[in-house]
Structure formats: C-alpha cells, structure tokens
C-alpha cells in the first residue's frame, strides 16, 4: 500500500480486514502519524490493544515488525548497538603477531563487529518497517531523552563509524501504560492516541470478530459483564479487551450457550489477575449477582 496515496477510509478498511475494530478516534491519529511520518504515542490501560496496532500496521504494509521491549535499566547498548567484544578479542588473539596495530584497530571497529540492536536495525533496514517501542514508561528518563533524539532525526552517530542515516523512516509506534509521566520533549515529537476501554457495542463487535464461534447473545452478555466490572467495581486492574477475549474463548471451550454464574466462577482467574481484585469482586457483587445484573440490563 502506498503511504502517500493512503486515505482514512482505506486505512479503516485495512484495520477491519486485519480484525482490528477501529473508529475515527483511532484511525485518524494513526493515519496522521503515517502521513506526517511522525511516531505515534499510544496510551491506555494494559490490554486495550495498543501493541496490536503496531502488529496490524506491519501486516497491512506487509513489512517487518521490529520490537524494542522497554524495561527499567534499558540503555543505549541494548537498544541501539554494541561492539561484539568477544569477537574482537578472538580477532586480536588471531592476528596479534602478524598485522600492524593500526590495521587491527581499523578492522576491529567495522560493521562486522557491530551487534545491531532494534533501533539500529530499524534505521538500517532496506525497506520501511514498523518499529514498536513497547511500554516506554518503564524506561528511565535518561533513556527517554536519548530516544527522542533518535526519533527526531532518524540518524545515529557511532564514533568509530560515523553517522548512519535512516534509509527509510520507519513507522514508529510507542506504547505507554501511563505508569510514569513521559517528558514533554518526547510527547511533543509524537502524534498522540489515547485508547480507552471500549463501549459495550464496540466490545460486542470485537468479540464477534475475534471469537466468531461464540453465540451472539452470549457475546452481548460477556460485553455487558465486562462493562459492569470495569465501571462499577473498585478494581486495581480492570479486565481489558484481551481478558474479555480469553474469557470468550474459555466460554467456547466450556460449550456455554448463556452466561451462567458457574462460568464466571470457573474462569474468574482469566478476568481478574490480582487476588485482592478477586476478593473485592466476590465481596461486592459475586458471579450470581453479576449475571442477574447483566441479564436485567439486556432486557431493557
């Protein structure tokens, strides 16, 4: 697909073809990021489909997805490049007595001894790819500063080799769980997209697309139950779309026709991942009451 001729409608259709239900609020920021060649910063609770956007984009443009998973303590060596120290040492041992020292040094700092990490890989790639920088909020602030330098110019300076310019500016997707406030500098360079939990109607569509074996009525009940749990129970970690789909798949395996308290009881661990949340759910509502609430709401 040619990026320069891309339209909003085309992008929306492509998303749907790849099984990602997206409305204007999602499609337009993604479209703008692609057309303006800017990174897109996606914020939202875990499991709402942030990372999935990068995967879908890679599939739509039939290109590689290069992933940089962030964690605390991640530094340039792990993200950009590193010299292959062991290989250099072996080389030194092998040619110690036969070559001049200047030549050894020249050879040792050549691309053959460079270990490419995801950022460099994305910059050096021979075709446009999707670079996913996942959970950027987990890194330290200094790494974030380094990152936005790379993202603003799409070039990297390696002292021994010189500056490497990107052959194709990658499609950059950054995801953020909102655990830490990101710097203004980084946010300013990105197009921003906030993905909230879906509405009941949207969630029903998602379930029907991803778990087509599930009965339509049951899909509505599942979406209703999820909506209620998110908005009416004081949970630490609200069940998100990925949990909904796990639950829906579990219901298929259980051969369920209608949502019953027993189903929730048996698959509660798929929905709530925290013991305190499970206790809170059982204390506040419980499976039987939840099913009753969902059914009475659907009747209305």
């Amino acid at each position: 697909m040619d990026l320069k001729k891309l339209t909003i409608e085309q992008l929306r259709t492509s998303f749907e073809e790849e099984g990602y239900i997206a409305e204007d609020e999602i499609v337009i920021p993604v479209y703008l990021a692609l057309r303006l060649e800017k990174p897109i910063l996606i914020t939202g609770a875990p499991g709402v489909g942030k990372t999935e956007i990068a995967k879908v984009l890679a599939r739509i443009f039939k290109t590689d997805l290069i992933r940089l998973q962030c964690y605390e303590g991640l530094d340039e060596n792990k993200a950009l490049y590193e010299w292959n120290y062991q290989r250099q040492l072996i080389k030194i041992q092998l040619i110690k007595e036969s070559t001049s020292s200047e030549l050894i040094e020249q050879n040792l700092f050549s691309p053959a001894y460079l270990l490419e990490r995801p950022l460099l890989k994305a910059i050096q790639a021979t075709r446009k790819n999707v670079l996913l920088i996942d959970e950027i909020d987990k890194t330290d602030e200094e790494f974030e500063a380094f990152l936005f330098e790379v993202l603003s110019d799409f070039q990297v300076s390696i002292p021994e080799l010189g500056t490497i310019y990107a052959r194709h500016i990658p499609i950059v997707v950054l995801t953020n769980n909102g655990e830490r406030e990101l710097s203004d500098g980084l946010k300013r360079r990105c197009v921003f997209l906030y993905i909230d939990f879906p509405s009941i109607e949207k969630e029903i569509r998602i379930i029907k697309t991803k778990v087509p074996q599930l009965e339509a009525r049951l899909a509505e009940e599942v979406a209703g139950a999820m909506h209620y749990m998110r908005h009416h129970i004081d949970l630490k970690k609200k069940p998100s779309i990925s949990e909904t789909l796990d639950f829906a798949n579990a219901l298929v395996l259980m051969g369920a026709q209608r949502l019953e308290p027993e189903h929730i009881r048996q698959a509660l661990n798929l929905l709530l991942k925290d013991k305190d949340d499970i206790d809170m759910f059982n204390k506040e509502v419980g499976p039987a009451e939840l099913v009753e609430i969902v059914r009475s709401r659907l009747k209305r």
């Binding site: 337009i28 920021p29 990021a33 914020t43 197009v191 921003f192 997209l193 906030y194 909230d196």
Partner: peptide
C-alpha cells in the same frame, strides 16, 4: 480527532 491527536498529549 486530528486536533486532539496533535495538540493534546495527556488523557
């Protein structure tokens, strides 16, 4: 949607 994506950076 276009203005929200480019002008605001915080939910």
């Amino acid at each position: 949607a276009a203005l929200a994506a480019t002008l605001i950076k915080n939910p």
